[in-house]
Write a protein that binds this DNA or RNA. Structure first.
Lengths: 69, 69
DNA sequence: TTTAACTGTAATATATAGTTTACATTATTC
DNA sequence: GAATAATGTAAACTATATATTACAGTTAAA
């Protein structure tokens, strides 16, 4: 489940810890999402969008083929 | 958790049942998502996008305020 | 106005998203 | 190159997304 969270997070100058705190989630959750090892819920995706100021499509859209990752 | 799934599904002329089958999920899950009573996972959102041919933003973006619904 | 297709929803069960605690590894800075 | 911050990850736990079964309400067509 590839995504662009890490890039966007670095762009707004936040550590995983800081992003997690702003969202109200643990650092581990952010780490696993960035690594593509989690299948986050829509609510969490939207929270991340808010903080890093990107749209769902910008952060989470991936073509059907790459999605299996 | 408001969204535009129902509108998009009707546009492509599918019943909840048919959409559910194409995605590999139960009809109840689709019903509850359309009603905004579920917080679906990203993978499921992307599957719905595929079938109804819409983007994540088109189906699931909602402003921060309305999101609490 | 009955019949059938579609939808809403409730109860219980199961799978998995997210937490907690903890430790290891990889930058970064002194 | 030691100290510290940032990140990866594992195990056991908790919360919740989704399945299963079932039934009731709604709509449309006959």
């Amino acid at each position: 489940m590839k995504n662009n969270v890490k890039i966007a997070r670095v762009q707004v100058n936040l550590t995983q810890q800081q992003l997690a705190e702003k969202i109200g989630v643990t650092r581990q959750t952010i780490s696993l999402i960035e690594k593509g090892k989690y299948n986050p819920t829509l609510k969490l995706c939207l929270s991340i969008c808010d903080v890093v100021q990107k749209s769902l499509d910008e952060l989470f859209w991936v073509d059907k083929e790459e999605r299996t990752k």
